[in-house]
Amino acid sequence: MRYAFFLGCTVPVRAQNYELSARKVAEVLGIELVNVSEFSCCGFPVKSTDAFTAELIAARNLAIASSLGLDVCTLCSSCGSTLTEVNRRLVRGTGLRGELEQIGREYRNRIDVRHFVRVLWEDVGVERIKSKIRRKLTSLNLAAHYGCHYLKPKEIFDFDEPEDPTSLDELVKITDATVTDYENKKTCCGGAILGIDEDDALQIAKRKLDSVREVQADALISICPFCSIMYEDNQRKIESRFESTYSIPVLYYPQLLGLALGLDPKELGLRMNRVRPDTLLSKLG
């Protein structure tokens, strides 16, 4: 299992804990993540301004991975969705290939795009991960957050089910923690409109934090850097603006899995989490 590791914009600057933990977990599970310095932004942030430019930016990244003969693995769900969508167009062989040649790139070998969590779910598989578990996180009660672009639009993904998703729940269960259902489980984090209307975005995020607090989860499990920015980095702001208190840790899934694989919290970047997961860690004994 070897992938071109696509970091995108947010992860290398604002979610190093996600990157660190994913790299550690990959190492333990025998997933090789190849660094590619020429990768840029995936294109998604430009889509609202000019979809064609966004498409070409995505296609350029895919051409680079294609020339290396490697499938792409992303940590950010929006990168995953954008690259998956454009990759399908390149595979179908639309005029986009010609456009790529105009910028001196070529989509040579057919490649695939996968979110890191999908790699764990499908390529590594539950049984293999289970065989590596060194520590059972039985005392934890966790809420899984799928976000939007991990599974949507459905027509470009051929796994799991966005209206009733299970892959992340099952992956959390591997650690022996309890996965709890909660209201608004499938709701968006609001991150995409944070720069447009901060109040609206924070209110959207607040709804989920309210639901997670109601079921008394020890943490919210995230698989996208922007979702974590909304629920973790902005948690204080939401608390002060709407006069509520949460103190809900938000862990990236590889951080959680890393604990179950017996890795040290420090190696998993847990010290970098904005909402300190101290209570959660002490529950593990």
């Binding site: 949507k152 639009p153 968006c188 609001g190 995409a192 447009i196 975005a201 959207i204």
Partner: peptide, 12 residues
């Protein structure tokens, strides 16, 4: 027009 959160819930 700028307020779409791009979540795809409508389209799905």
């Amino acid at each position: 027009v700028w307020l779409c959160s791009t979540c795809y819930a409508c389209q799905e």
